[in-house]
Structure formats: C-alpha cells, structure tokens
Simulated assay, not measured.
Amino acid sequence: MSGGALRLACAGLLSGIAIGVWTTNSHFRPLLDHQRDKAAQCSAARDNLAGLAQEQGKALGDLTLAANARKAEAVKAAGKAKASADIDYTAANRLQQERTGGDQCAAATSIIDKELGL
C-alpha cells in the first residue's frame, strides 16, 4: 500500500468515525436530555417532599405541645374544681348535720343564708 492510499484509507476511517460520532450523538442526545430532565424533576420533587415532611414534623410537634398544654390546664382546672367541690361538700354535710327545730326547709334556708353571709 502506497503512502497516498494509506492516507486515503485513514481519511476514510476518520470520516467514518466522525459520521458515526455525529449519528450516535444525534440519536442519543434527545434521550440523554430527556433523562436529565426527568432526573431534575425527580430531584425537585424529592426536595419538595422533604420540605413538606419537615413542615409536617414541625406542625406535629406544635400540636403535641399544644395538647400537652391543654392537658396540663385541664388537670389544673380539675384540681380547682375538686377543691371547690370539697368545700361545697363539706358545707352540705354540715347542713345535714345541723338540725334545728321546725321545718327542714326553713332550717336549710337559714344555714345557707348563714354560709353566704346574708
């Protein structure tokens, strides 16, 4: 093979490689671009879901704190109500134990008025 034929063969080989690269690039570039777009969409969706999960976690924490505060207030109110009821219960027992002569309604009214300071 002479030098000119070798150069022609090399030029043909190089142009074949260039055409092959161009054809492959033309064929696969849209597929690669589509996959890159899908990957970007998936990343954005993942980031969005992570943000939403973080917001939900914070909201759940806030709700738990609010529930605990309401529970503490309810326990406190129940304690006050019991203390108040105990006072009324004691007064009612005293009313039953104090027997005065005559009508029981008049006696109860008299004792209640006395308790109330009337």
Score class of each variant (00 low, 15 high):
Asp62Ile: 03
Ala83Asp: 15
Asp86Gln: 15
Met1Tyr: 08
Lys80Pro: 08
Ser43Ile: 09
Gly57Gln: 08
Arg94Cys: 10
Ser26Gly: 09
Ile111His: 06
Ala92Lys: 09
Leu32Val: 10
Asp86Ala: 14
Leu31Asn: 08
Ala53Cys: 01
Leu31Gln: 15
Arg99Ala: 00
Lys114Tyr: 11
Ser43Met: 05
Ala108Phe: 07
Ala106Gln: 04
Asp86Cys: 07
Ala9Val: 08
Asp37Cys: 02
Leu8Val: 07
Tyr89Ser: 13
Gln56Asp: 06
Arg94Tyr: 06
Ala81Arg: 05
Leu6Met: 10
Ala44Cys: 05
Thr23Asn: 04
Asp103Val: 01
Ala81Phe: 04
Arg94Thr: 15
Arg70Gly: 00
Leu60Gln: 04
Ala72Val: 03
Ala18Ser: 03
Gly3Leu: 13
Gly12Cys: 01
Glu98His: 05
Gly12Arg: 08
Asp37Lys: 08
Ala92Leu: 15
Ala45Asp: 11
Tyr89Cys: 07
Pro30Cys: 01
Ala107Cys: 01
Ile19Val: 13
Met1Val: 08
Lys80Trp: 15
Ala85Met: 10
Ala107Asn: 07
Gly20Cys: 04
Leu63Phe: 05
Gly102Ile: 00
Cys10Met: 10
Ala45Val: 13
Ala74Ile: 12
Gln97His: 07
Ala66Tyr: 01
Ala77Cys: 09
Arg36Glu: 14
Lys71Thr: 09
Leu118Arg: 14
His27Pro: 00
Thr64Leu: 07
Lys58Arg: 10
Gly16Thr: 03
Ala77Leu: 11
Asp86Trp: 08
Gly101Glu: 03
Ala92Cys: 14
Ile87Met: 08
Ile111Cys: 01
Ala18His: 07
Gly51Asp: 09
Leu8Pro: 01
Gln54Thr: 07
Thr24Tyr: 04
Ala81His: 05
Met1Gly: 11
Leu52Arg: 12
Leu63Glu: 11
Thr23His: 09
His34Arg: 12
Phe28Trp: 08
Gly4Glu: 14
Gly57Asp: 02
Pro30Glu: 02
Ala18Lys: 07
Asp62Glu: 13
Lys114Ser: 13
Asp47Ala: 06
Thr64Trp: 03
Leu116Phe: 13
Asn68Cys: 01
Tyr89Pro: 00
Ala69Thr: 02
Leu116Val: 12
Asp62Pro: 02
Lys80Asn: 11
Leu63Thr: 06
Leu14Asn: 07
Ala66Pro: 06
Leu118Phe: 12
Arg70His: 02
Ala81Tyr: 05
Arg70Phe: 04
Ala85His: 11
Asn68Ala: 14
Arg36Pro: 00
Arg7Lys: 09
Leu6Pro: 01
Gly16Arg: 05
Ala59Ser: 13
Lys114Ile: 03
Ala77Gln: 13
Ser43Trp: 10
Thr64Pro: 00
Ala74Glu: 10
Ala91Val: 11
Asn25Phe: 15
Lys71Trp: 04
Arg99Asp: 02
Gly51Pro: 00
Leu60Asp: 12
Gly16Asn: 06
His34Met: 08
Ala106Trp: 02
Lys80Val: 10
Ala40Glu: 13
Ala53Met: 10
Gly51Trp: 02
Cys105Thr: 14
Lys71Tyr: 09
Pro30Tyr: 03
Ala108Gly: 07
Arg7Gln: 10
Asn93Gln: 09
Leu14Trp: 12
Asp88Lys: 15
Trp22Pro: 00
Gly79Glu: 15
Leu13His: 12
Leu32Ser: 05
Gly16Trp: 02
Val75Glu: 15
